[in-house]
Simulated scan of single mutants.
Amino acid sequence: MHDTYRPNAGSDRRGTRAALRFALTLGLAAACATAGSQAWAAAACDAPWMHQGGGFTATLAPGQRTVTYTVTQFSKRDGNNCNGQIHAAMKMSMGGQPMQSESDVHFTIVDGKAAAQPEQTSNGSMHGSSGAASLNGMMSAQTSGILSYVGEITSEGQRIAGTRTQGSMSGTAANMGQSVGTMNVPKFVTTTSDKAVGKQEQLQTGAGTFACWPVTYDRSMQADNAQLMGHTANLAMKSHVVDHFCPATGLVMRQDTVTNGHAVTLTVSALH
């Protein structure tokens, strides 16, 4: 993470690629909030955490990463119609340094479905900091229905069509309050294969035990011409994913991901 923010980081390309990956992590955290807003669509307005000041906490293991989602704005007409804003605050450790980032995403649910269409975008701000260094910018992400499991899953063996989302990011890196460079990812694209629904099972989480559907698929992310501190790189990541969707909460309560042989698990550890 030293290479991300510090002006004396040098021209090490591996450090630059790591920095770009972190920048994408910030954007994907915001995009995750966007995607989640659609995953909750069918019953989201009545979900126990969906209210002003409500939300949930997700933890990643291994990785020392925690993301707290908070509903900062909320207006509800009935169980199927509401809108508001979700604030995602991520804390993690990278390179031995504590990091934190923040993003905000607006959502709208109409007649039990997310109002966003494939060509619409959701804009949000992002902020990352470590000590006296910081990264500020804007991101946009398509809201095309990724992980929209509410109302979709009816039985084991069901197939759900894959998805494609895209977004962009731009920002400024600073150290001790002074600008030291810019970050620009003109487009990152995330695609998934068709998704296979497995047998419903009981899932134990820090927030309780729920009946959940495992949903298995492959996911890829591509970012071409990503630029940071004068360096340009094309980044690509491929992962095998299992989402454990729990209808009682309207959330994917656990996501198991294997990327390049490295396994991580993201779990909803608390509902607020």
Rank of each mutant, 00 (worst) to 15 (best):
M1C: 01
D3W: 03
T4Q: 11
N8E: 12
A9M: 09
D12I: 10
R13L: 12
R13C: 05
R14P: 06
G15F: 09
R17Y: 07
A19Y: 04
A19I: 02
L20R: 13
G27W: 09
G27P: 09
A29Y: 10
A29W: 14
A29H: 14
A30S: 12
A33R: 07
T34I: 10
A35F: 09
G36I: 15
Q38T: 13
A39N: 14
A42G: 06
A47L: 05
Q52Y: 09
G53R: 06
G55H: 02
F56V: 07
A58I: 05
T59S: 12
T59K: 10
L60C: 10
A61W: 05
A61R: 12
P62G: 05
T66Y: 02
T66Q: 12
T68L: 12
Y69Q: 13
V71M: 02
T72M: 01
Q73Y: 03
Q73R: 12
F74Y: 11
F74N: 06
S75Y: 02
S75D: 11
K76I: 00
K76W: 00
D78R: 03
G79I: 00
N80D: 09
N80T: 07
C82R: 01
C82W: 05
G84N: 05
Q85Y: 06
A88L: 03
A89W: 06
G95E: 00
Q100P: 00
S103M: 03
V105R: 10
F107D: 01
T108V: 06
I109M: 01
V110N: 13
K113G: 06
K113Q: 08
A114M: 14
A115Y: 09
P118N: 06
G124L: 04
G124H: 07
S129V: 08
S129L: 06
G131Q: 07
A132Y: 04
S134V: 04
S134M: 02
L135C: 01
N136G: 00
G137Q: 00
M138S: 12
M139G: 10
S140L: 03
T143S: 07
T143A: 08
V150Y: 04
G151F: 00
G151E: 01
E156T: 02
Q158T: 00
R159W: 13
G162K: 02
Q166C: 09
Q166N: 14
T172M: 10
A173H: 10
A173E: 13
A173G: 10
S179R: 12
S179A: 15
V180A: 08
V185N: 11
P186T: 07
V189Y: 06
T191P: 02
T192P: 04
K195G: 07
K195W: 03
G198C: 04
K199D: 04
L203G: 08
Q204A: 15
Q204V: 15
T205F: 11
A207H: 10
F210K: 11
F210D: 08
P214A: 11
V215C: 09
Q222D: 13
D224G: 13
N225L: 10
Q227C: 11
H231R: 15
H231D: 15
A233E: 09
L235H: 04
K238W: 04
K238Q: 11
S239A: 07
V242I: 00
H244D: 14
F245Y: 14
A248K: 02
G250S: 00
L251V: 01
V252L: 05
M253E: 08
R254L: 15
T257P: 02
V258Q: 09
T259S: 15
G261Y: 01
G261T: 01
H262F: 07
A263K: 09
A263T: 07
V264S: 05
S269P: 03
S269I: 05
